[in-house]
Simulated scan of single mutants.
Amino acid sequence: MSTTTDPDRLLLDDRRARILQDLQRDGRVLSTVLARRYAVSEDAIRRDLRELASQHLLKRVHGGALPVSNAFEPYAVRRVQEPRAKQDVAAAVARWVRPNQVLFLDGGSTLTEVIAHLPAGLNLTVITNNLHAAVALTDRPDIHGVLLGGTIDSASHITSGLRALEDIQAVRADACLLGVCGLHPEHGLTAAHQEEAQLKRAMVRQSAECAVVLTRDKLGTTAPYVVLPAADIDTLFIEPDVSGEQLAPYRQLGIQVLQ
């Protein structure tokens, strides 16, 4: 069997591996820049980006690509990732919460962790579609917990659907705490599924404040469905050791960053 194409395949694989390294380092790649860097045509780079996107290794956007969110991993995988970071972020959220608030609490493992960090005596009402947070609330008789109705999403471990949307629309909350699939200063807050994005938007519309809770692995990444522009976020919670340089684009949009 002929192996004349093997050197070309090796060169192609090496270039694609380097593109992923560029993306990890810079947080974004442009087709025109990559074409000059690797001395190939922009068509060749576009083919590279299409192939890498088909493997869920990056997210193609007009003119280049962005890092892809890990939101497509099952909840059982995500819930054990970065436990210390999630605890740090949850503690920052708990310091921010004020007595007597009515809060929407979104899905996600970081927001589940928030329940354990909320101090006693705040007289809160927490309305959530997060099944694990709802279970955690059964151990908090000092918090009035409300589970949104709807269909159980076995991938994200949330309730969703028309019933959940109607339940959200019947509430005026002081703030919503949103989980995040991806957050990018230009491409905004994004979700893995269209219905999930719709529920998040509804929580924002029904709340006086919008707070986003995430760990660094979601920062600068994107998922397929846009929830809202980054500039519409009031407060962003993230780990204490994320650098000011990484957070500068969000602060420039007027977002309060708490660590």
Rank of each mutant, 00 (worst) to 15 (best):
M1V: 14
S2E: 05
T4R: 15
D6L: 15
P7N: 08
L10V: 11
L10S: 05
L12F: 12
D13E: 15
D14N: 15
D14G: 08
R18Y: 06
L23W: 13
Q24K: 14
D26I: 12
G27S: 04
R36W: 04
R37H: 13
Y38P: 12
D43L: 12
R47N: 07
A53C: 14
S54R: 13
Q55G: 01
H56A: 09
L57G: 02
R60M: 05
S69M: 05
F72V: 03
Y75P: 00
Q81F: 03
E82H: 11
P83V: 07
D88G: 00
A90E: 06
A91H: 12
A91D: 04
W96M: 01
W96R: 04
V97P: 01
P99Y: 07
N100Y: 01
Q101C: 02
S109F: 04
S109M: 04
L111A: 02
V114Q: 07
G121R: 07
N123S: 12
V126Q: 01
I127D: 06
N130I: 10
A134D: 06
A134V: 11
V135E: 14
T138S: 14
D139Q: 12
R140N: 07
P141W: 11
I143E: 00
H144I: 02
L148Q: 15
D153I: 13
S154K: 14
A155W: 10
S160L: 10
R163S: 10
E166M: 10
Q169P: 01
A170L: 05
R172S: 13
A175Q: 10
G179S: 06
V180S: 04
V180Q: 00
G182V: 08
A192M: 13
H193C: 00
H193Q: 12
Q194K: 13
E195Y: 06
V204I: 15
Q206C: 11
E209D: 07
C210K: 07
V212Q: 01
V212F: 02
V212Y: 02
T215D: 15
D217G: 00
L219T: 07
T221S: 08
V226I: 14
V227T: 08
V227G: 04
L228D: 10
D234I: 02
T235I: 02
T235L: 00
I238R: 03
Q246A: 13
Q246D: 12
Y250A: 05
Y250L: 08
R251D: 00
L253G: 06
I255S: 01
V257R: 03
V257A: 02
